[in-house]
Design a protein around this nucleic acid. Structure first.
Length: 900
RNA sequence: GGGCGCUUAGCUCAGCGGUAGAGCGCUUCGUUUACACCGAAGAUGCCGGGGGUUCGAAUCCCUCAGCGCCCA
C-alpha cells in the first residue's frame, strides 16, 4: 500500500542511486539510435548549486529525459571548468586561513599541488548536488577542463591557431586587476557607480605667462603620464591653442595641444588630458597622434616613475621634481590625494565639482581595474567570429527565443581581439618558450620547442617557458569536442558533435556561446557546435529582485528540495519558465506546486485501493465504454500537447498541459465517473474501466517523468509497470487508436455540463448539501434522456440527484431550472429554495446570453463582415447566435414558470 | 546616448488578427470509498494612454508614458 502522504525524501536518494548504478544515464556510442546531445555548460569547480543552476539543469534534464524516453541515444555530458582566478583565490584564502605560507613563498609547483588536492577534496560539491536535483548526467564521462585529454586539446588549438596567425603576442592596453595582478577580460569588468569629483586643472600655456588651458579629469593621479591635451577641432574656444605646447604641472614636461574629435566640447571644460598608457580612449588618441605612452603606475597600481624620471623638470610655481619623486611607490589613491593637495597649493585647480560616474571594477577582486600597457597573447576573435555570425544568419544555428540573436550579432560584429593570457598559476600554461634575442617557439611540448630552437639557432639553446596561463574560457570553448576525445578521432566525436542544443542564460551568450561557436567551427571543419541555443531568464526572488547574498534574498535549492521534494522544485521551475522571461521564484510558489505531486500520489493511491494494476495486454483500441474512450482520447491530446510544447522549448506549456490533464481531467472527472463502476459488480464494464485506468496512469507517469522523475518512478515501480528504476528508460507515450472518440467526447461533455449546471444552481439558490433532488427534464431529445439514464449513478453522486425523469404535465411550483443544450432541467425544491435568488440567477444568465446575442447580431448585421470575413467565421457566428437565442427562449420560459 | 524586452483579474503570468484565459489569492458552502497539499460554487478586467491599418485589434503599425535589462 502506498503511504497516505507523499514523502519524497523516502525514495529520492534510493531511486537516483538505482538509476546511476544501472547505467540508465549512459549514452551508447554503439547504439543504432539517433543521438541526442546536450553539453552541460560546465559549472565552475568552486561552485555550489544555486537557483540559477536549478533552473538551467532542470530544463536540460527535462529535455534529456524526454528524448531518452523517445528512444534517442541521449548524451548529457557532465563536468566542471577549472575557473582559473576563482579557484586560485579559493585556495589562497584557504592557505591564509590555515596560517600557511602564501603561494609565492611556497612556489608554483607546490601551490599547484595544493590546488589539485583541494580539487580532489572539494571540487565535487556541485556534481553531488546535481544528483539531488535528479540530473541524469552521464557521470562516467565526467570531464574537467584541466584533465590531460582536455589539456592536450588546448595545446593543439593554441599551437594551431598560432601557426595560422590567429594567435599572436601584442603590447596593448588590457584591463588589469591590481589586486589579483592579472589581466582580465572586459566581460569580467563591471561598471559600478561611484561618487567622485571632476577636477578642473589648469595647465599653463608655454610661453604665455598667465594663460592656462583648463582640463577636466576624474583621475588626477594619472596626469604624471599625460602626453597631450586634446580639444575638439571645431571648438572655437581652443582653436588658437592647437599645436601649441603646455607645461605639464608638477612634472614640468612639455606636452602638445592636439585636435581630436574624441574631445567632447559639451563635457567638462571641453579640453581633455591624454594619458595613453592609462585609458582606453586616450590610447587611441595617442595612436592617432603618435604620442609617447609612458606608464606611471605599476602592477599593483602604485606610482612608478621609471618611465618619466628623465623628463622631470623644475618650473617655478608649476613643477617640482622633488614632490614627484616623493610619490614613487605610493598607492594610486594616496597619490591622488597628494597630487590634488599640491595642485591646490600651486593654485592650479580651477574648480572641483562633485561627480558621479561609472568606474570599472574587477568582478572577482572588487577593486577598480587599471588599464595597463603590457605584453599579452591575443586571439584574433574577429576572424573566428565571422563564420559564427554567418551560421546564425543562415539558420544553421538558431537562438530560442530568436530575439537574442540581436544581442549576439551586436557583440560578434564588433568583437575585439581576445586577450587569452592570464598572470595566474592555476590553468593551462601557455605552450610558448622564449629563446635568446626574444625568439618565441610555440609548440605542444618542450621537446618540440627545443627542436624548433635547434633548427633556428643551429645549436641547443636555453629556453624559458612563458609563465602565464590561458583564460579559462579558452579551454571551455573547446568543451563541445574536447570532452569527446578530440584531437583523437574518436567515435564519440563523430557521433555526438554537433550537440543538439545548448541551454544557458543570456548573461552567458558572450562567454560560452560565442567562444564555443568560434572554436567549434574553426576546428570541426566548419560544423557548428550545437544547432539550437535555448536562452532562459534569470531566477529572481518573488518581488523580481535579483538574488544576491548582500540583499539576503537567496534561496537554497537544496533546502527547498529537503522541504518539498526535488519534483516540486522542478515542476515549479518548468511551470514558471515562460519564453524570454525571468523566473520569479519564491518559497510559496514551490509550496503551491508541490500539491500537484501530492495530487498525483493520491490519485494513484485511489487506483491502488481499487485493485488497479498494470495489465500490459490491455488493448485501448478495443475499449467500448464512452468513459474509457473519453479518457484515452484526453490522454492522447495531453501527449500531443506535451510533445508540441517540449519541441518548442515551452516548458510552461508542457507543465500546464500535464496539470490540466492530470488534475482537471483524470482526477476531477475520470476518477469521479469511475467510482460507481469500480464500486459496482464485477463484469466487462468494470474490467474495462480498470483497464483504462491502469493504462492512463501509465501514460501519466511517463508523460510527467521528464519533469517529475522521482515520484513518477516510485509509482511506476510500486505499481509494477516495470522493474525497479525502469521508467527512466520506458518508451515515451504515443497516441493510441480510440474508436468513436468524437461520440465519447460529446457524451461526457454533456454529462459534465449537466452536473456543472446542477451544482451551480444548487449553490446559488442555497440548497443545503444534505438535500437531494430528482431532476425533471423538459424538451429533452431522446439521446439526452438515454445519456441521463446511462450516467445516472455518476450524476446522483456528483450532482446530489435522486433520479432523472422526463417532465410530464405542468412544472411543479418552486423549481430551480437550468438549461443544458436543448433541454431544461428542473430541480423541484419547493420550500427549500430561495425563489428570489433563483429568479436573480435566471435573469443573470439571461442577461449574459442577451449580451452575447447583441454582440453577434451586430457583427452579422455588418454587411462588410459578412462579405469579407472567411465563410467559416461567418457560419460559426450564425450558429452561436442561434444557440444564444434558443437559450434566451428557454430561460424566458423558466422565468415564466416561477413567475406565478 | 544606442539596443532589447515588459506593461492583460488582487498577485504571478499565458494568449499575439475572429467567443479575454490559467494558477495562486479572495468570498461562500462542504468530513460524499484517494487527496483539507482536498472538493463545489462565486466575484474580479476601459488587455498602460492616444492615434492608425482592418469587416474585425489584447494581438499588426505609429506615438507617448512608466518599468527592467544589456552595451557605451
Amino acid at each position: 500500500m502506498l503511504d497516505k502522504t507523499l514523502t519524497p525524501s523516502s525514495f529520492e536518494t534510493r531511486l537516483y542511486e538505482g538509476w546511476e548504478r544501472s547505467g540508465a544515464f549512459a549514452a551508447d556510442p554503439n547504439s543504432a539510435a539517433q543521438p541526442f546531445t546536450i553539453m552541460i555548460p560546465p559549472p565552475n569547480v568552486t561552485g555550489s548549486l544555486h537557483m540559477g543552476h536549478a533552473l538551467t539543469f532542470t530544463i536540460q534534464d527535462t529535455l534529456i529525459r524526454w528524448r531518452r524516453m523517445q528512444g534517442r541515444d541521449a548524451l548529457w555530458q557532465p563536468g566542471t571548468d577549472h575557473a582559473g582566478i576563482a579557484t586560485q583565490m579559493v585556495v589562497e584564502r584557504l592557505l591564509a586561513a590555515e596560517g600557511n605560507q602564501d603561494r609565492r613563498s611556497m612556489g608554483r609547483e607546490a601551490f599547484l599541488e595544493r590546488v589539485w588536492q583541494w580539487k580532489a577534496e572539494s571540487g565535487g560539491t556541485i556534481t553531488k548536488q546535481l544528483r539531488r536535483l535528479g540530473a541524469s548526467l552521464d557521470w562516467p564521462r565526467e570531464r574537467f577542463t584541466m584533465d590531460e585529454g582536455l589539456s592536450a586539446a588546448v595545446r593543439e588549438v593554441f599551437v594551431t591557431l598560432h601557426k595560422q596567425g590567429l594567435i599572436y603576442r601584442d603590447r596593448r592596453l588590457v584591463n588589469w586587476d591590481p589586486k589579483l595582478l592579472t589581466a582580465i577580460s572586459d566581460l569580467e569588468v563591471e561598471s559600478r557607480e561611484v561618487k567622485g569629483s571632476l577636477w578642473h586643472l589648469r595647465y599653463p600655456v608655454e610661453g604665455e605667462p598667465g594663460r592656462f588651458l583648463v582640463v577636466a579629469t576624474t583621475r588626477p593621479e594619472t596626469m604624471l603620464g599625460d602626453t597631450a591635451v586634446a580639444v575638439h577641432p571645431a571648438d572655437a574656444r581652443f582653436a588658437d591653442l592647437i599645436g601649441k605646447k603646455l607645461v605639464l604641472p608638477l612634472v614640468g614636461r612639455s606636452i602638445p595641444v592636439v585636435a581630436d574629435e574624441y574631445s567632447d566640447p559639451e563635457k567638462g571644460s571641453g579640453a581633455v588630458k591624454i594619458t595613453p598608457a592609462h585609458d582606453f580612449n586616450d590610447f587611441e588618441v595617442g595612436r592617432r597622434h603618435g604620442l609617447p605612452m609612458p606608464s606611471v603606475l605599476d602592477a599593483e597600481a602604485r606610482v612608478m616613475l621609471a618611465e618619466i624620471a628623465a623628463e622631470l623638470r623644475a618650473v617655478e610655481g608649476v613643477a617640482d621634481p622633488a614632490f614627484v619623486q616623493g610619490l614613487d611607490g605610493k598607492d594610486r589613491f594616496a597619490a591622488r590625494k597628494a597630487i590634488v593637495a599640491k595642485l591646490e597649493e600651486l593654485g592650479l585647480i580651477e574648480t572641483i565639482e562633485p561627480h558621479t560616474h561609472q568606474v570599472p571594477h574587477g568582478d572577482r577582486g572588487g577593486v577598480p581595474i587599471e588599464p595597463r600597457l603590457t605584453w599579452q597573447w591575443y586571439c584574433d576573435a574577429g576572424t573566428l567570429a565571422k563564420p559564427c555570425v554567418e551560421a546564425v544568419e543562415t539558420g544553421r544555428m538558431r537562438f530560442v527565443p530568436k530575439q537574442w540573436e540581436n544581442t549576439f550579432f551586436a557583440w560578434m560584429r564588433d568583437i575585439q581581439p581576445w586577450c587569452v593570457s592570464r598572470q595566474l598559476w592555476w590553468g593551462h600554461q601557455i605552450p610558448a618558450w622564449y629563446g635568446p634575442e626574444g625568439t618565441i617557439f610555440v609548440e605542444k611540448t618542450e621537446a618540440e620547442a627545443q627542436e624548433a630552437a635547434r633548427k633556428h639557432f643551429g645549436q641547443d639553446v636555453p629556453l624559458e617557458r612563458d609563465p602565464d596561463v590561458l583564460d579559462t574560457w579558452f579551454s571551455s570553448a573547446l568543451w563541445p569536442f574536447s570532452t569527446l576525445g578530440w584531437p583523437e578521432r574518436t567515435k564519440e566525436v563523430a557521433r555526438y558533435y554537433p550537440g543538439d542544443v545548448l541551454v544557458t542564460g543570456f548573461d552567458i551568450i558572450f562567454f560560452w556561446v560565442a567562444r564555443m561557436m568560434m572554436m567549434g567551427q574553426h576546428f570541426m571543419g566548419g560544423e557548428v557546435p550545437f544547432r539550437d541555443i535555448y536562452i532562459h531568464g534569470l531566477v529572481r526572488d518573488e518581488k523580481g529582485q535579483k538574488m544576491s547574498k548582500s540583499k539576503g534574498n537567496v534561496m537554497d535549492p537544496l533546502e527547498l528540495i529537503d522541504a518539498y521534494g526535488a519534483d516540486a522544485l522542478r515542476f515549479t521551475i518548468c511551470a514558471l519558465t515562460g519564453p524570454g522571461r525571468d523566473v520569479k521564484l519564491g518559497r510559496k510558489r514551490v509550496e503551491d506546486h508541490r500539491s500537484f505531486a501530492t495530487k498525483l500520489w493520491n490519485a494513484a493511491r485511489f487506483l491502488e485501493m481499487n485493485g488497479i494494476a498494470p495489465e500490459a495486454a490491455w488493448d485501448p483500441a478495443q475499449a467500448e465504454t464512452p468513459l474509457a474512450r473519453w479518457v484515452l482520447d484526453a490522454a492522447n491530446r495531453a501527449v500531443a500537447e506535451a510533445d508540441a510544447a517540449l519541441e518548442a522549448y515551452r516548458f510552461d506549456e508542457y507543465a500546464a498541459a500535464c496539470y490540466r490533464f492530470v488534475w482537471g481531467g483524470f482526477c476531477d472527472w475520470f476518477i469521479e465517473f469511475a467510482k460507481p463502476v469500480l464500486n459496482g459488480s464485477e463484469g466487462a464494464e468494470k474490467a474495462e474501466i480498470k483497464g483504462a485506468a491502469q493504462h492512463v496512469l501509465g501514460v501519466i507517469l511517463r508523460l510527467l517523468h521528464p519533469v517529475m522523475p522521482f515520484v513518477t518512478e516510485e509509482l511506476w515501480d510500486r505499481f509494477g509497470y516495470g522493474p525497479e528504476c525502469s521508467l527512466i528508460r520506458a518508451p515515451w507515450p504515443q497516441a493510441v487508436a480510440v474508436r468513436e472518440a468524437e461520440a465519447a467526447r460529446a457524451e461526457l461533455d454533456w454529462v459534465v455540463a449537466l452536473v456543472t449546471e446542477v451544482r451551480a444552481a444548487r449553490a446559488e439558490v442555497n440548497v443545503p448539501p444534505s438535500v437531494t433532488t430528482p431532476l425533471l427534464v423538459k424538451d429533452a431529445a431522446p439521446e439526452s434522456l438515454a445519456r441521463a439514464a446511462r450516467w445516472i449513478e455518476a450524476i446522483r453522486r456528483l450532482g446530489r440527484v435522486t433520479e432523472i425523469t422526463p417532465l410530464s404535465g405542468e412544472a411543479p411550483k418552486g423549481v430551480a431550472q437550468v438549461v443544458v443544450g436543448e433541454a431544461t432541467v428542473m430541480l423541484p425544491l419547493a420550500g427549500v429554495i430561495d425563489l428570489g435568488a433563483e429568479r436573480a440567477r435566471l435573469l443573470k444568465a439571461r442577461g449574459s446570453a442577451e449580451g452575447e446575442t447583441r454582440k453577434i447580431a451586430a457583427k452579422l448585421g455588418n454587411a462588410d463582415f459578412v462579405a469579407r470575413a472567411p465563410e467559416e467565421v461567418v457560419e460559426e457566428n450564425r450558429e452561436r447566435l442561434a444557440a444564444a437565442e434558443a437559450e434566451i427562449a428557454r430561460l424566458d420560459a423558466a422565468l415564466a414558470r416561477i413567475a406565478g
